[in-house]
Write a protein that binds this DNA or RNA. Structure first.
Lengths: 190, 190
DNA sequence: TTACAAAAATTAACAACGTTAATAATATTA
DNA sequence: TAATATTATTAACGTTGTTAATTTTTGTAA
């Protein structure tokens, strides 16, 4: 009973934080803005979270889950290589929609080593879940390293596009990712 | 004469900033710590830079040049594919040596669109300069997209390793990059 | 219901941040 | 030497994350 109430209040803070990031952006997020939206004083946050980074880590986890749900909700009908490409682009789109989510998830300084160690596992899990059936359809080699190359292409392209404004044009950005993924998938064709 | 003196004082601030980033790390950098090391009051910085981001952008540019010099200084003797691999690893090593430099160059929030637009051009220029002769030795196709894949592999791997502590082991990290670059270079072999 | 103890939430306060305005110190020129 | 322009400094503001002290609320026993 005590735990339920505590979880409920934690939820208010988590949702407030996520809302601000989605709306005003990660630069508008602060202990005070979060608490205000949650309906509490800023100091109350510290009764439920060790510090603001602990809250951020929870948001990172939930945003990652949302990215997976986002791709599933797109109901992609294609199969094989085309499905891998489509889902990769969908994943990219999720972060394009909310650049601040990318910033929080990938670049924000949240060094909570306990949770951090599994970050990449979670990321890998998303791709693994989404793409495993598509990979199985294909008769190609080195699927694992191909998936790694695709992921790195996406992360790096998002980093440069959202953080360093390169390329300037959206179309150039998408075309570049598409071309690279297609190229990766074209290797070792049997 | 006026310009020389002004450039000289700007240099004090730039060098102070770079020193702190190399030494104590980017988290220790502030208007006050920079000015203190430069031998001036914190407000003096604003007589020479619009804001701290303008100073950061200059440091980003200089660190990028340093990364190129670092690779050249390694005096890599290999040729062809091996040279491309060796230089790629050397580039990675530069940022491993100073994680804060990676943070500043790739993830820090320095939205000065004027200068930002050419950031990727500078990055591309480094690789282009260093690798062009090595590429010329090779009789393979799609050199441009291969170089892009290699760069994205490096940036993304550094991002996850330095920012999200994945993988945990240094050796795993280097092996993964090496394997991916070798794989990219193995395509289209003639 | 009343009195007390435990829990939760709030206000006050601190040090550090980037930045600007007002002031002091220094150079330059007449 | 006196007046002016330039450069540097201190004071101050609003914001940040965080902690301590304090108030408010909740739960329990008489």
């Amino acid at each position: 009973m005590k735990e339920i109430q505590e979880a409920r209040i934690k939820r208010y803070f988590i949702d407030a934080c996520k809302e601000i990031i989605r709306g005003e952006g990660v630069n508008s997020v602060s202990v005070r803005t979060i608490a205000e939206r949650a309906g509490y004083s800023f100091a109350t946050l510290y009764n439920y979270f060790k510090d603001i980074k602990e809250l951020f880590i929870i948001c990172v986890d939930e945003f990652l889950l949302e990215s997976e749900e986002f791709i599933i909700s797109r109901n992609i009908k294609s199969t094989g290589k085309q499905a891998i490409l489509d889902k990769s682009i969908a994943f990219t789109m999720f972060f394009l929609q909310y650049p601040s989510i990318f910033k929080l998830v990938f670049t924000e300084d949240i060094r909570e080593l306990r949770s951090q160690t599994t970050f990449k596992d979670k990321l890998d899990g998303i791709f693994s879940n989404l793409l495993s059936s598509d990979w199985n359809e294909l008769v190609i080699e080195n699927k694992k390293i191909k998936e790694e190359l695709i992921k790195n292409t996406i992360y790096s392209s998002l980093l440069l596009y959202l953080n360093r404004f390169s390329p300037k044009e959206y179309k150039t950005f998408i075309d570049s990712i598409t071309q690279q993924i297609k190229y990766i998938l074209s290797f070792d064709d049997i």
